[in-house]
Computed example of a mutant assay.
Amino acid sequence: MRKDKEIGTDRRADMVKHPLFRETKLVWQCNSARLFQRLAMTLAMVLSLAAQAQSELPRLADGAPDTYVVERGDTLWDISALFLNEPWRWPELWSVNPDVRDPNLIYPGDTLYLRWKDGKPGVYLSSSDRNIGTSDVVRLSPKLRSEPLAAAIPALPREAIDPFIARHRFITQFDLEAMPRIISGYRGRLISGMGDRVYAVGAFTGEQRQFDVVRPAREISHPETGETLGTLLSSVGRVVLSKRALADDEANQFDVLASSEELRVGDVLLPVEDRQLVAQFLPKVPTVDLDPGFMLPLDVGAKQIGALDVVATTYGEVDDVDVGTLLSITKVGEPVTDSISGKRYTVPSENAGTMMLFAVYDRASFGLVLSANQPLSVEDRLVKP
């Protein structure tokens, strides 16, 4: 028996030494390595997808409160910034709340509660939702709110946007000589006011009788190319046509209905527009890639810009942006010289704030600075958030 065992051992030793065995062992090792590599790649992919899914959740702001009582003067953006690093994602935060189907229906005095459900954060409106995470069923009872709808808090600070829209216009091509304009006041006066009479030249042949009186506020130009993007016009009054010219060399007569400042010779007359103000601005991230743009001031000589300031931008309809588009404001880092080697290095750009476009034209637009974490300057860069 022992001899047979020794013979079997010798045979196994000879088999291990056989070239075919060594080749089979090598193939098995290679296949095992490939299998292990595939398993590792699969695990990495799963972890990556999990991390991506996690990153797609709205990111809560540091120190986000568990509760917040809405105050008069708050906006949806202000409240969202308390809870989120990206305030424009508030629909995701509130979409899980059956009691806040329309975020605009939030009123001063309401209490908001931050709760988690199924691994996702949510903001709930009533105290009855305190235990929302313990049950998938939310019972709501009918209730009547006696406050008028106008008392609901707005999405954004309208007092910073509406006056600009009401008092300004923007045109791409401004040719004073070709536009209807005031050439004189009553008895040759250079300035006129409400109740006065003015005379203007131009084609006033249609049914339109009332006209806005505007004058150039500033020319908007691209800071790199110098290309004129358009002219911002400010409204200074309104006039009504009282006597139409009967000949080409005769001026038209107008009566001044209103004026926010004196009307001057050279002021332009444009037909009154029925400019409907947007009821609710809904901030959104651009759906297309954007080349870096520039933020431009509205006041000539202005150097500093802050939160809730209205600014012009070099983005327009040609860039596939529209009303509500959100942009990040970045400050380009100044080159730094290494004191040891003398070599110059570029410092990465820093995020300095957020703005939203509320009026978009062909090659230019106007936006409201919603937040600023440091002083902003003229010609700071604009990029996709």
Rank of each mutant, 00 (worst) to 15 (best):
265 V>I: 11
7 I>S: 14
257 L>G: 00
256 V>R: 04
252 N>M: 04
45 M>S: 12
303 K>R: 14
162 D>E: 09
202 G>E: 05
371 S>L: 04
223 P>G: 07
43 L>V: 11
326 L>I: 13
121 P>M: 10
354 T>G: 02
323 V>T: 10
286 P>D: 00
376 L>C: 04
224 E>L: 06
120 K>M: 12
253 Q>Y: 10
47 L>E: 14
358 F>K: 10
14 D>A: 14
358 F>T: 07
269 L>P: 01
303 K>A: 13
60 L>F: 07
51 A>H: 07
310 V>S: 04
46 V>P: 01
133 G>P: 09
319 D>F: 02
5 K>L: 15
121 P>Q: 11
136 D>N: 13
125 L>Q: 07
190 L>R: 11
19 P>F: 03
328 S>G: 13
9 T>Q: 15
301 G>W: 01
365 S>P: 04
283 P>N: 10
280 Q>C: 10
138 V>F: 11
274 D>G: 15
27 V>S: 13
335 P>W: 00
235 S>V: 11
238 R>Y: 04
214 V>S: 02
255 D>I: 02
162 D>F: 08
174 F>K: 04
27 V>Y: 10
266 G>T: 03
29 Q>M: 12
326 L>H: 05
140 L>Q: 13
60 L>A: 11
47 L>M: 12
198 V>A: 05
60 L>Y: 06
99 D>G: 11
302 A>H: 03
245 A>C: 06
290 L>W: 01
282 L>R: 09
106 I>S: 15
15 M>Q: 15
228 T>P: 12
264 R>V: 01
280 Q>G: 04
91 P>C: 13
73 G>Y: 02
187 R>N: 11
48 S>N: 12
130 R>W: 10
355 M>A: 08
189 R>P: 06
222 H>E: 09
341 S>K: 00
183 I>R: 08
4 D>C: 07
349 S>C: 03
1 M>D: 14
67 T>W: 04
205 T>P: 06
285 V>A: 10
23 E>M: 15
103 P>K: 06
322 D>S: 15
310 V>L: 05
336 V>K: 06
50 A>W: 10
56 E>D: 14
180 P>T: 06
212 D>V: 01
320 D>A: 15
383 V>H: 00
249 D>V: 07
232 L>Y: 01
302 A>L: 08
294 F>M: 10
37 Q>W: 11
275 R>K: 12
110 D>A: 06
108 P>L: 11
156 L>E: 02
42 T>N: 15
54 Q>N: 09
98 P>R: 06
350 E>P: 02
84 L>N: 05
158 R>K: 10
253 Q>V: 14
274 D>T: 13
290 L>Q: 00
260 S>G: 06
310 V>W: 02
321 V>H: 00
237 G>W: 03
144 L>N: 15
190 L>W: 03
104 N>Y: 13
236 V>W: 05
326 L>K: 07
108 P>I: 07
274 D>E: 15
177 E>V: 13
383 V>I: 10
238 R>F: 03
17 K>W: 08
